[in-house]
Amino acid sequence: MVHYDWGLPVAIDLFAAGMGAAAFMVAVMADLAGSKKFTSIRLTGAIIAPWPAILGVLLLVVDLGKPFRFWEMLLKRGEGLSIAPPYLMFNPGSAMSWGTWILTLFVIISLIYLIVSIIAIPFSWGEIATKTIGIIGLPFALLVTTYTGVLISATSNALWSNYLLPFVFVSSAIVTGIAGIICILAILKMLKLLEEDFIPGLEKLNGVMIVVLLASLALFIIVGIMQPQMLTLIASAKLGILFWLFSIILGIIIPLIFSFKKEGNPAGTSFIISLLVILGGFFLRYVILIAGQIA
């Protein structure tokens, strides 16, 4: 079996962290634009946000060659076992060092956001508190989605070093983040627990985001078309099928067709389509990660 230095755990992290951060961004944007009107969207986003990022961080730690040394990324080593000033480890030239801190801070902020979102509902200060924490977390969420792309793009890997990769991953993260919220809302709708139906609106919004994703992917492929690894990605038997079938057809084209239906979709359809979008987002990370490591 071929060994990949970065395999499934890293692919899951790139996908999950991006999706969680994007769900957070949607929640905050809905909150800022519509306040109480979009409470169900805000709460759903807040509930989703921290967990994929936490899963991603845990997988990254497990994937280390020395998992118990994960703290070396947080604390600065001095001589021997001592911790040297400035005590915290940060290497500004390393996308991974940035990612370590961005992810850590995002997980903390999104957890606070979730707690405040829930406990503050009955109080008069609740609205301003959630908005404030949301605004503080917004740049971190945007940085998390970008970091997933920058991490593998700022390398000497022929396929990954494509300058458009961060754009692709950011747009894919947002598409999966919105799909995550639709997925939960669709379940609630099927259980008849929702008063207002925001799903058709969110699906139209995601339709536009999917078009942005398609555009970013097209640019990514055009820029990298001279790389042999790009051909592995788009034209090889195994990865090519995963890429076209799961990422493009099931994850992008079919959801796009269902996005702009005037009368909206039944809750069950919305649920399945949103799952397809999420699955497509995961396979996109996975095939790009693996294709880059096939010589």
């Binding site: 961004m25 949607v26 944007m29 809905a30 800022l32 634009a33 519509g34 979009f38 030239g93 996308a95 917004l138 945007l142 940085l143 989605t145 970008t146 970091y147 792309g149 920058v150 793009s153 700022a154 390398t155 000497s156 070093s161 300058y163 458009l164 990769l165 961060p166 754009f167 991953f169 950011v170 747009s171 947002i174 925001f198 609106g201 919004l205 536009v208 985001m209 942005v212 970013s216």
Partner: peptide, 28 residues
């Protein structure tokens, strides 16, 4: 590999998308 341009290529479109999202929710 350069870091800064790659951050910008993610952050700038991301910020534009966020603004679009805000506009969308405001419109709704």
């Amino acid at each position: 590999p350069l870091l800064l341009p790659r951050w910008l290529i993610g952050i700038v479109p991301g910020a534009v998308i966020l603004y679009g999202m805000f506009k969308n929710f405001t419109g709704v």
